[in-house]
């Protein structure tokens, strides 16, 4: 399996096989992957996952730099284009470009190659500001993780992956199916529960999500669970009622599980454009978002919008999703992220 993972992105034909195999393995609830194995894999997977997604920007920047003899406005303008195409957003891009321009001027930088260094440092600075907060906040036990986000971003799938990861660290995990709204959302989470070998607390479709959370907390206490992870229904941030519902859930957690360590994860889809900033802003107002999960980075979208979000809202990215399999989740490390963005170790 390890070897296969290694080759996953090299050999396109094997990719599908791997996918089927992942599914098969998952079905046997292969929750036995040891922590060691995960760690050995993590850099490799990060690089593989990212190299696929970020090749675009890397190659483009390399080509761009090579085609210029000196640092001039034209170069900066083209760089601007590359950054915007990565969804970094007009405003953040302008700020970055201004920074590069100023710095190049102040330090009399002439070689285009240096631009890359400045850009890299800047991105690392923006993303690396919260290095201490990039771990899941689950110590000490008991802990509760609330997972929220707009529709279809990958909340339920990410929960399955997180549960798998924590189980690998010998944690006792419980899931709460508090998406009582979407068709078959409960079943979906239950399948993930079976896959990774953790139990799921659920009610009927249409039940009150707060009641599910309440029950799940009681169950977590009774079963001495280390980490309770709560799935919630997808909701668009501009729907007041649905956002208020999150407030209600937070209150239940506060009241019923005051001693629990808490993490609230906002899941963002890397394919999303500038609206992700709005999502992050409003979800942050509604619940105390303590971390981001950036999913679907295995596509061609660059997820550049997190740079603007990090800068503006100061919420750390904690995890990234690079596929639909149980192991396609990685810890976010700003250094590796930016390095991988530039195709370096």
């Amino acid at each position: 399996m390890l070897k296969k993972l290694f080759d996953k992105f090299k050999n396109e034909n094997e990719e599908k096989d791997q996918k089927i195999e992942d599914v098969e393995n998952n079905k046997q609830a292969e929750a036995s992957a040891s922590t060691e194995e995960n760690e050995a894999n993590i850099f490799k997977r990060l690089k593989e996952g990212l190299s696929k997604t970020t090749q675009g920007i890397t190659v483009k920047i390399e080509d761009l730099i090579k085609s210029y003899q000196k640092v001039d406005e034209e170069l900066l303008e083209e760089l601007e284009e590359v950054l915007i195409t990565a969804d970094i957003g007009v405003q953040t891009t302008m700020e970055i470009i201004d920074h590069i321009r100023d710095k190049a001027k102040a330090e009399k930088i002439k070689e285009p190659e240096m631009i890359k260094v400045i850009l890299k440092d800047k991105l690392k600075e923006i993303l690396g500001e919260f290095e201490d907060d990039q771990q899941l906040n689950i110590q000490p036990s008991p802990a509760i993780i609330l997972v929220v986000g707009v529709n279809g971003v990958g909340k339920t799938t990410s929960i399955g992956k997180i549960a798998h990861k924590l189980k690998g660290q010998n944690k006792k995990v419980l899931l709460a199916a508090a998406d009582t709204f979407r068709a078959a959302a409960v079943e979906q989470l239950k399948i993930w529960g079976d896959r990774v070998g953790v139990e799921v607390i659920s009610h009927q479709e249409g039940a009150d999500p707060a009641a599910v959370i309440f029950d799940a907390i009681q169950a977590a206490k009774a079963r001495k669970v280390d980490v309770l992870i709560c799935d919630t229904a997808g909701r668009l941030h501009n729907k007041k009622n649905l956002m208020n519902e999150l407030g209600k859930i937070s209150k239940i957690v506060e009241r019923e599980y005051a001693n629990a360590t808490r993490d609230v994860l906002l899941v963002l889809d890397a394919t999303t454009g500038q609206n992700a900033i709005q999502q992050a802003k409003i979800f942050k107002e509604a619940t105390n978002i303590s971390g981001l999960v950036l999913t679907k980075l295995d596509g061609t979208a660059k997820g550049g919008v997190i740079i603007g979000i990090s800068q503006e809202l100061k919420i750390p990215v904690k995890l990234i999703g690079v596929g639909e399999g149980v192991a396609d989740l990685q810890e976010f490390d700003s250094n590796s992220f930016v390095n991988a963005l530039f195709g370096e170790e």
Partner: peptide
């Protein structure tokens, strides 16, 4: 297509 899609919409 999700209307929130960013720059990548063209590739998709």
């Amino acid at each position: 297509v999700d209307s929130m899609t960013g720059q990548d919409a063209v590739n998709v």
